[in-house]
Each structure stands twice: as structure tokens, then as C-alpha cells.
Design a protein around this nucleic acid. Structure first.
Lengths: 229, 229
DNA sequence: TTGTAACTCAAACACGTGTTTGATACGCTC
DNA sequence: GAGCGTATCAAACACGTGTTTGAGTTACAA
């Protein structure tokens, strides 16, 4: 009833809160929400689990955000992954830039830090909320566009749009496989360490594998369906 | 209390049930469970939703299966995807067999029929239950082994195990991308029809793209990192 | 007809969920 | 100190969950 007027007058300035030594309840709530939502998705996450991790009372969620859904929206910070995109100013050639992008993306997908976002994305892929549209628009779409530009720079401007799109999917699919099928890989090959060196080797393989595919598309040779050994 | 002794004496012979014109409650329950579990995963699925779709009372689940979890186990029929593997007797060469496999897998992943299993697998990848170990052992592992044999037949027996493994991941990753990122693709490219012809074209692209990668691995040329345009 | 077993059902149970409430403590101005 | 807004809390609320119960119905044999 009277809940609508509450949150506006409470803590509009987050800097005043962050100035304290220990983060205030609202900030701890946001941090905990990011963790729990990434682990369990929107439906699977419970406000009690979030509040327990934040060390606040259950009522704090509705006190600061009015609802679990509003907390979900407020907790997401889907700023574009600029670190993956700012290679445009890089002087390297397109082939090297693609290899670097693959390595950065793979690191982001596998590392425990960046995996928080991609973990949440996986939940959204299975049970989309309204948030998915925003994620696709602000994060995923720039990624696809960037890879598409790299592919076009490598194979030439005459590539058909469908072919370009499929090449982007092929490259991104190889990378995202290591996150989506992570539980499968760990069961099939428990010996893989997935440390920094393994990630680098894997990224190098994906880059080499993909550049070979792009090179074959670049040369207008005979169709592959009729190829015989 | 007395529930343990019940289900053994009830309906051990499913054929007697299937002989009727309309499937009995137990069979309808299993069919509905397969649908709802695939849509929502184990946690997201509710016994009331399953029973509503099956047209039976809520008590039927515990009457026939003792628990929601037992219904989950009974509903899963993860027989190996033999249709994807029986190409071993096929006389075609390894390259053509790989292309055929990719097309079959892609059809299975995208088609609404086969997607029931892969949809459930996606839920298991996010929130693994004990069922995932069984799925990996009986379904996923044979798939990886089969692709590994095809890759080895194409690039030769001298390929390093890590390289072989990464090639398998690259091929499967390109295919599974169309399922895992289905919601992203539909938002980025709503114009794609994904009918039979589109699937065939996509499969042909993945096969060509992958064969180019395998061919480059087969020829022990210079490393790709030092390549310049 | 009677008895027995399999089956079905509405209702209830115990518990977890998001949300609300009323009270209490803190920090501030007057 | 009085007054007031902010913040925190335990407790309760309404509802959805898996599960159980006890009565009712059906089918078939004695």
C-alpha cells in the first residue's frame, strides 16, 4: 500500500554509502544478489539466501528495492564487455586480433570472476526473463558485431551475410562450449587443469582452427560437398 | 510408512497397460513428466503441473512412483543416440561421415522432438543432479568418442590426444551453439527460419569449416601465431 | 452378494517461498 | 530531552510446494 513512496527517499546517492569503510546493507545486498542470482538464476535464488549471504534481515530486500524482481534488475550491471571490444584501436592485423579476442573471451568465460555474468546468462538462456533482451542488446550483440567485423576483414568484403553470420557462430560456439558444457568436460576429462596455460593453448587451437575455416571460405574453390578423399 | 511396499504390486507390466486404447494413468504421467521436466528442469517442474498435463490427480505421482525424484528417474530414457552413431557400418569415407554426423546432430538439437532430451541436458548442465553422470556416461561420452574416431580417421593416427580432444570440442561446440544460444540467435536474427533447408545449409557450413581446420592440423606447416597477412 | 485389491480423488499436512507488519534502536535537528 | 526520519529486526502473512490421508469408486473372483 504505502510501499511505493518509500525507496525514493532512502538512499539515492550510493557514493555516500560507499564512502564508509564497510559497505552498507544496501551495497552488501547488491553484491550478494549478484552472486546468488548467478549461481541459481532468478527463480532458483531465494531472498533468504541472498540476505543470509549479505548478513542482513529478510525484510531488507523489500525495504530497499520493494521486490525480489527489482533487486534482480538493480543487481545486474551488464555494461558492455569493452575489454573484449577495444581491440579496434589495436594496430595488429585482423588475424592476430581475432586470436587475441578468442583468448580474451575464453579467459572471461572460464575465469571465476567473469563467469558470474555468463553463468547468469546461461540461466537466462534456459528461462528467459525480460532481462535477456537487455543483455542481448547491450552485451551479446556488440560481441557478434565485433567478431563479424574481424571475419569480414579476414575473408574480404564479398562474403555473403549468411556465411558471415555462420562463421561468427562457429567461432563463438567453439568458445562458449567450454562454459556451457563445462560440467560435461569435467566428467569426461577430469585431468584437464584449466589454468592460464591450458586456456592459452585452447584459445590458440580455436584461433588456428577457425582461421583455417575462414581461409577456405576466402578461396572460391570447389564446393566441399563433392569433395572425395 | 506403508508406502514402500506399494508400487511393486501395482503395475510391473507396462505392456498390459499399453495394450489399452488410451494410455493408463501411469503412462500418461511418464509422458507428461518427460515434457515438463524438459521444459523446466527438475527443480522448476512441479508435480501439480505434471499431473495437470497428464490429467490425473496429484496423489498419483506418489501412488505410482513414491516421490517426485523417482518419477524423474523413471521418466528419463537416455538410450544412446544410436541413430547418430550407427554410421560406423556406413561405407562412406570419414569426411562424408563427419558431414553426415554433423547434419544428424544439428537436426537432433534443433528439431522439437529431439530437443526434449537436450533441453533437459541443458538444465542438468546448470543444476546437475545425479542424473547428469548417467547422461554423460550413456549418451554424451559415446558421442565424443565417435567424433574422436572420425577426426582421427581424417587427420591421421599421429594426432596428439590434447589436439584430438580440442578438435572434438570445436566440432561439437559449433553444433551445440545453435541449441544453447537459441534464444540469443532468435533475438539477433529473427529472420532465420530454421527449417530443414536452413539446418542442411548450416550443417554444410560447419562441416566445411571444421574440415578446413582438420586439414590444417593434418599438414605439419608453420605455426599460426607467426602468420602475417 | 460379498470380499478384495487396484485405483482415484478432494482435502489436509508440513514446509519453503516472497512479502508485510509492528516494534525497536540509532542519528540528527530543534 | 522531544521529535523525526532512517534502519534493522523477529514475527507473521498468504501462497505454492511435495507429500500423505482417508474415503470413495471400479473391476473381478469367490
Amino acid at each position: 500500500m504505502t510501499a511505493l513512496a518509500q525507496p525514493e527517499t532512502k538512499f539515492t546517492d550510493e557514493l555516500a554509502c560507499a564512502a564508509n569503510e564497510m559497505p552498507c546493507a544496501r551495497e552488501r545486498l547488491l553484491a550478494a544478489a549478484r552472486e546468488v542470482f548467478a549461481e541459481s538464476g532468478f527463480r532458483g535464488a531465494t531472498v533468504r539466501a541472498i540476505c543470509r549471504r549479505a548478513g542482513v534481515n529478510v525484510a531488507a530486500v523489500n525495504y530497499y528495492f520493494n521486490s525480489k524482481e527489482a533487486l534482480f534488475s538493480a543487481a545486474l550491471d551488464f555494461t558492455p564487455l569493452n575489454r573484449l571490444l577495444d581491440a579496434e584501436n589495436s594496430p595488429a592485423c585482423a588475424r592476430a586480433r581475432l586470436a587475441g579476442f578468442i583468448r580474451e573471451l575464453l579467459t572471461h568465460l572460464i575465469s571465476t570472476r567473469g563467469s558470474q555474468k555468463s553463468q547468469l546468462l546461461m540461466h537466462e538462456l534456459l528461462e528467459p526473463t525480460l532481462m535477456l533482451d537487455e543483455i542481448v542488446r547491450d552485451v551479446i550483440s556488440p560481441l557478434h558485431t565485433h567478431v563479424g567485423q574481424l571475419v569480414r576483414a579476414i575473408v574480404g568484403p564479398d562474403i555473403a551475410p549468411e556465411t558471415l553470420r555462420r562463421c561468427v557462430f562457429s567461432i563463438l560456439g567453439q568458445c562458449t562450449f567450454y562454459r556451457h558444457s563445462n560440467e560435461v568436460i569435467r566428467r569426461l576429462h577430469p585431468e584437464i587443469p584449466f589454468d592460464e596455460e591450458e586456456i592459452a593453448r585452447t584459445a590458440a587451437h580455436i584461433a588456428e582452427f577457425s582461421l583455417a575455416g575462414l581461409d577456405r571460405l576466402a578461396q572460391p574453390s570447389a564446393g566441399p560437398e563433392t569433395r572425395k578423399p
